[in-house]
Design a binder for these strands. Sequence first.
DNA 1: CTGTTAGCGCTTTCAT
DNA 2: ATGAAAGCGCTAACAG
Lengths: 353, 353
Amino acid sequence: MANPRSTTRAGRSTGAVTLQRVAEHAGVSIATASRVLHGGGSRTVGEELRRRVESAARELGYVSNAPAQALARSATSVVGLIVHDVADPYFAAIAAGAMRAARRQRLMIMIAATFRDPELEIEYVRSLRAQRARALLLAGSGTDDRSLTDRLAAELAGFREDGGRVACIGERGAGPAVPLDHAGGAARAATELWRLGHRRIGVVAGPAELLTVQQRLAGARQALAQLGGELPDSRVVFADFTRAGGREAALELLAREPGLTAVLALNDVMAAGVLAAVQDDLGRAVPGDVSVVGFDDVPFAVDLRPALTTVRLPLEEAGERAVQLVVEEAPADRPPLGVSLVVRDSTGPAPQR
Amino acid sequence: MANPRSTTRAGRSTGAVTLQRVAEHAGVSIATASRVLHGGGSRTVGEELRRRVESAARELGYVSNAPAQALARSATSVVGLIVHDVADPYFAAIAAGAMRAARRQRLMIMIAATFRDPELEIEYVRSLRAQRARALLLAGSGTDDRSLTDRLAAELAGFREDGGRVACIGERGAGPAVPLDHAGGAARAATELWRLGHRRIGVVAGPAELLTVQQRLAGARQALAQLGGELPDSRVVFADFTRAGGREAALELLAREPGLTAVLALNDVMAAGVLAAVQDDLGRAVPGDVSVVGFDDVPFAVDLRPALTTVRLPLEEAGERAVQLVVEEAPADRPPLGVSLVVRDSTGPAPQR
DNA sequence: CTGTTAGCGCTTTCAT
DNA sequence: ATGAAAGCGCTAACAG
């Protein structure tokens, strides 16, 4: 004989334990059950019934149905986070911060990785919109592609109209943001190099179309100009924001401008590649022959060979702030996150010649 | 029958665009609209109506309501992934693989980070159960705590009863798993060290209660025993699976057993700490004085100083397989993922004495 | 091929 | 304080 979960009255096949069943089991109305099990604080149910409902729920192993709740109250507790690549320590750090904050707010984070495809980013905000996510966090850099940006903006506008909140990590003109001073950081790095006597500095940059890259590059360029130096285009090479990209770019850069005494990598992952290129491929000493500075200060920067001098960005905190921004746990006008230069062993005085 | 909702455009800027509205706008029934907009492939709608519905949806800017769909068909397209810490490259790699596979299946990944708190893991499977996630991926190591394990198992059983699928990355007796040969990998590492002439080998291990740690440790111990060597408890120190943990453990290990010529770190992040301890704190050479081998082969292993010899685990692929396992995109009996030893520069012959 | 019509499980007035 | 009932937006029989 079959062994159904409980005796069924008419046809109604059993299985999932619903609020309905909990209510029956406790001998109360479904409304009451809802109030005790999901009622937000406003305890408006008598002690006796409350107890009965609670034990019924426990006995039956009740688990609330989030989609049903979402439908009924048209609001979910999921926050979408769109990153380029979770395996990239930059995004991993942001995600970690966001998740920490989410836990405090009892929110769930749904992460989508675009693998650097802007089309996918748009597709994902649409998905998250369909999920009726409570908020959306855009962690990746924006692009200077107007059409893409406009389409994204349209999708985000729709999301907001449905009542969703949006926050960006780093300015990208698509809503409130947790500002990240890319330009300032790059300026700090360039200035340090200048101070060390470097006059011929090259830059290994990420994809040229990324706003973040443009801002960092502009910061370095401006600082150098102000100092009386320069950063001609011939000293900048763009590549993927990866270790391989950094390595190739460094090789090209130093082939093109052999006299460079320092290179600024626009992120730490690329810096790792630069270090490999300079030391292993080219057999030059760091910082003896050429100094290298990175950007972001991801966890492994200190373990690089030599330990990387880099611009520190408080990524985890940025992630936390982003969720605070969308759940208004904190005032929107907090002092911006500071960037700082962490001087380690990959930089030194410019070699005499 | 007056529709109370769409009483025209007075006041409120017409609420959400629902299927109902799209249907009206297209002059078809809501069922037809549903069929064209969400109908899975089985095109059973006339060309004419199909076109009308599609353009109506576009004009109105319709976005489907996932929670409503989930409720109606009692199935979602979200897959939960529970990790210890997204910022840890081990989990980041797994997550990246999972997301890549998820995209192909048009699934969304909801990541929950336990920050290494087993209680939280249980809490999160409950949450994901409430979300009616289609599947659950457990990426973290299990524990040898019986009570915790039982409670988790109970929760997972409930999840399965509701129709959810579960997969683990690495065996943990909680359902089908993407096997990861922790023991075999450790054996390979230990054997290599032995081959290089090392006879006094120490181990810097992660938390003792983690199954993964126990398996790796057992693998190393057994290999050594087989070779005629040994791994007494005095040569094993447990600490957090972090850089700091690795560093402290290495310091303690070498203080306790100064004669060690090699140390096996049970993951690469710890290995980074070991390298720092040995070289920077103790001023000993690697691999001249002591050889170091890591575990996992995370991306930065090659950039460590010196480049780390380590056991390679195909983490991204494991993540991909895990989602394939729960959506049965692939047969369950695929050949297990292979582990291999990547020999780099942190290992060398045992020093003569 | 298209429309009707029950629900899916829960929240939330509105009464009592 | 508690219950009855009307939805929330969509899917899936079940007719035509």
